[in-house]
Structures are given as structure tokens and as C-alpha cells.
């Protein structure tokens, strides 16, 4: 693929409370020619250093001292909607991963992934491609099903198209984008777009829910 040839260095921030991990990830990123513009050991440091560092990608461990990874994701995406958050989690707790994705993360990788997988994932999320695992696709499918099962469906809520559901289902069944493109007679790019749309809609839904919650609780006054 062309993306490995033309490699503009990326500005990356690494957030992890485990110093050996932080160093290992930083070393790999630097070795691959990227610019590690900031590191942080907890959520407080991460939020303090983020505005000045202006990274393209935040490589984020979810289990960090407060504020946790989900909260950090929410805050950095609110400050800079263009930043990409790649979640790198050791335990991969389902609820946390789904919460981080709803908050705006576009990639998820378990820590045992190889250095090559990590570098490829950083590159892909920077280009705006979501990095999905079948497990994450299953969670997202379940979440949309939950939304559409609601007793009083809200027309303002984003919904998946049939095609998007179909693609997401195939990701959850372990098919690669290439296999999906072949089966559906689509371009690789189109498959990527469909996957990306599902995440965008999920995050939109999350914002709609949060806004409604804020209005109901009367928090919208300020």
C-alpha cells in the first residue's frame, strides 16, 4: 500500500502510567521516524501537556490514574476535533473500550500487538481510518441495536444504513477489509469509509445523548 512509502512524520503523544511501556512505545515511534511531542503518566499530566504539544495522534492507555483514559479522550477530542486517539490497552475491558470509542477514540489495539501492528495502527488512525478489532465491531453493532430497540425511537438519532450494518457485521466476523471489499464488490476505500461512518455515528449518538442528559438535568444554563 502507498501509505507505507510516503511517510510524513507524525506528532505523537504517549500516555501510559507504566514507565517501561511508555519508553518502549516512544522508542518504537521515534525509530519509525515519528516525533514524540509529549509523554504523560496520568490523565492530569496528559490534559496539562496536550494543548501545547498539539499532537496528531494520542496513543493512550485506558487504565491510568485519574482522570482515566475515557475522560482524557473526551477532553482532548473536545479541545481538538482533528486529533486521533489510539487506545492501547492491556486488559481490554469491554465496557472501557466501548466508552472510549463513544468518547471519540478511533482505534483500539491490545498491548500485546507487535511493534509493526502498533506503527501501522498509528499511521492508519492518523489518516482517519478507524482501527477495529472484531470484538470492538461486535460491541458497536450491539450498541446500535440497543439504540434502535429503544421504546421511543428518536428520529434525530443517527442510524446505520443497511450497508454499514453489513460491513460492520463482516468486521465482527473477522473478515479483513480486503475480504469484505471482494465479497461486496466494493473498493477497499469504500469499505473503510463505511466503517468510519459507523464510528462517527456512534460518537454523534453519544453527543446527542449527553446533550439531552445535560438539558434534562438543567446543566445547559451556562
Amino acid at each position: 500500500m502507498s501509505e507505507t512509502e510516503e511517510n510524513p512524520p507524525l506528532r505523537v503523544m504517549v500516555v501510559d502510567d507504566h514507565p517501561m511501556w511508555r519508553d518502549a512505545v516512544e522508542r518504537d515511534l521515534v525509530a519509525a521516524g515519528h516525533d514524540v511531542v509529549a509523554v504523560a503518566a496520568d490523565g492530569r499530566e496528559a490534559l496539562a501537556r496536550f494543548p501545547a504539544a498539539r499532537p496528531d495522534v494520542v496513543v493512550l492507555d485506558l487504565q491510568i490514574p485519574a482522570p482515566d483514559g475515557v475522560e482524557v479522550t473526551t477532553q482532548v477530542v473536545a479541545q481538538d476535533p482533528d486529533v486521533k486517539v489510539l487506545v492501547l490497552s492491556a486488559s481490554g475491558e469491554q465496557a472501557d473500550v466501548l466508552a472510549a470509542v463513544k468518547a471519540g477514540a478511533t482505534g483500539y489495539l491490545v498491548k500485546s500487538a507487535s511493534r509493526e501492528d502498533l506503527l501501522a495502527a498509528v499511521r492508519r488512525v492518523a489518516q482517519g481510518d478507524p482501527v477495529f478489532t472484531p470484538g470492538l465491531a461486535g460491541l458497536v453493532l450491539g450498541e446500535f441495536q440497543r439504540i434502535s430497540d429503544a421504546p421511543t425511537p428518536d428520529p434525530a438519532q443517527p442510524r446505520l444504513t443497511e450497508r454499514e450494518t453489513e460491513v460492520l457485521k463482516m468486521v465482527a466476523k473477522g473478515l479483513s477489509y480486503r475480504q469484505i471489499a471482494e465479497r461486496l464488490v466494493l473498493s477497499h476505500r469504500t469499505v473503510q469509509n463505511h466503517v468510519q461512518n459507523t464510528l462517527t455515528k456512534l460518537q454523534m449518538h453519544n453527543r446527542v445523548e449527553l446533550t439531552r442528559y445535560a438539558i434534562e438535568q438543567g446543566l445547559d444554563a451556562d
Binding site: A24, Q63, S91, K111, S112, S114
Partner: peptide
Amino acid sequence: ARVVHDGVLQVLALVQRRGRE
């Protein structure tokens, strides 16, 4: 348990990664 698990997983993943290298 979550804290312990997370710590153990972190180290196991790191050993795996460094070992591979």
C-alpha cells in the same frame, strides 16, 4: 484485582514485545 491484573498484563505484554525484538 483489576489493578493487579492490569499490572501483570502490562508486564507480560512488555516481556513478549521485548522478547520478540
